[in-house]
C-alpha cells in the first residue's frame, strides 16, 4: 500500500467508528455525562462544600480534572475493547480488515484513533457539564498540557482496551479488566484526593499506580500544581503508550488471540 492508500484505510476505520458512536450517542456519550453530573453534584457540591480546600484550591476545582480524566480513561478503554471484541465475536466483521492489505500497525492506529476521538469528546462534554457546578468559571493554567494529557491518556487507554479486545474470548473477558483492574486504579489514582492526605505506606502504593501520574499531569494543566512533576507524569504516560503499541502490534502481527 502506498502512504496515501494507508491514509485512506486509516480514515475509513476512524470514520466508521465515529459514525457508529454518533449513531448510538445515547450509549456512547450520554452515560458518562450523566455519571459525571452525579459525581459533580454529590462529591463536588454536597460533600465538597464540607471538605473545604485541597492542594490550595476549593474542592470542586480540585476534583473537576480528576473526573474529566475518569471519563476519558473509562470511555476510551471501553470503546476499543468493545468495538474490537464485537467485530471479532458477533459477526466476525473484523475479517473485512484482516483479509485486506491494511498492515497490523495501521489497524492498531485506526482502532486506537476511534477510542481517542470518543474519549476526548466525552472528556470535553464532562468538562462542559462541570462549568454548571463551578459557576461557569474554570481555572486553566496551560491549555497545551490539558489537551496533550487528554489526547495521550485517551490514546493510552484506547491501546489498553485494544489489547483486551484482541485477547478476550467471551463477553465477560472485556468486563473483567475494567471492573477489577481499571476501576480500582482510577479511584485510587488521586481523583478525589491529594496523595499527601494519605499515610506514607498508602502513598508508596499510589506511586505504583499509573493512573496517579495521568490524573496529576492533567490536573497540573488546570491548577498549575500537582503531587508530582509534570515531566514524571509525561514520562510515565509516554512509556505506557509505547509499551501498549508494541503489545498490540505483536498480537495483531502474530494473530495471537485472533487467528486460528
Amino acid at each position: 500500500m502506498t502512504p496515501y492508500q494507508q491514509w485512506i484505510s486509516f480514515y475509513t476505520m476512524v470514520r466508521k467508528d465515529v459514525v457508529r458512536m454518533f449513531r448510538i450517542w445515547v450509549q456512547t456519550f450520554l452515560p458518562s455525562v450523566i455519571t459525571s453530573t452525579l459525581y459533580f453534584a454529590i462529591f463536588g457540591t454536597i460533600l465538597g462544600s464540607r471538605i473545604g480546600q485541597m492542594q490550595g484550591v476549593d474542592y470542586m476545582s480540585f476534583v473537576v480534572p480528576g473526573l474529566v480524566m475518569l471519563a476519558v480513561v473509562t470511555t476510551s478503554y471501553a470503546n476499543t475493547s468493545f468495538t474490537f471484541f464485537s467485530s471479532k465475536f458477533f459477526a466476525r466483521s473484523i475479517d473485512e480488515i484482516l483479509v485486506s492489505p491494511t498492515p497490523p500497525w495501521l489497524l492498531v492506529a485506526g482502532f486506537a484513533a476511534g477510542g481517542v476521538v470518543r474519549g476526548v469528546l466525552v472528556g470535553a462534554l464532562v468538562l462542559l457539564v462541570s462549568l454548571f457546578f463551578t459557576g461557569l468559571s474554570l481555572s486553566v493554567y496551560s491549555l497545551l498540557v490539558i489537551l496533550g494529557f487528554a489526547i495521550l491518556t485517551a490514546l493510552g487507554f484506547s491501546l489498553a482496551g485494544l489489547v483486551n479486545g484482541i485477547y478476550a474470548k467471551t463477553l465477560d473477558g472485556i468486563n473483567i479488566v475494567p471492573t477489577f483492574v481499571l476501576t480500582p486504579l482510577v479511584y485510587l489514582g488521586g481523583i478525589f484526593y491529594s496523595v499527601h492526605v494519605l499515610p506514607q505506606w498508602w502513598q508508596n502504593i499510589t506511586f505504583a499506580n499509573p493512573l496517579f501520574y495521568l490524573v496529576n499531569g492533567f490536573r497540573y494543566g488546570f491548577l498549575g500544581t500537582a503531587d508530582i512533576t509534570l515531566w514524571l507524569s509525561t514520562g510515565v504516560l509516554l512509556g505506557l503508550i509505547a509499551l501498549l503499541i508494541a503489545i498490540n502490534w505483536y498480537l495483531l502481527r502474530t494473530g495471537l488471540g485472533l487467528r486460528q
Binding site: T2, Y4, Q5, Q6, S9, V19, E96, S100, P101, T102
Partner: peptide
C-alpha cells in the same frame, strides 16, 4: 457502507 468501507481498507 459495507462495500465502500471495504474499498477503503484497500486504499480506495
Amino acid at each position: 457502507d459495507i462495500v465502500v468501507n471495504q474499498g477503503g481498507y484497500y486504499g480506495l
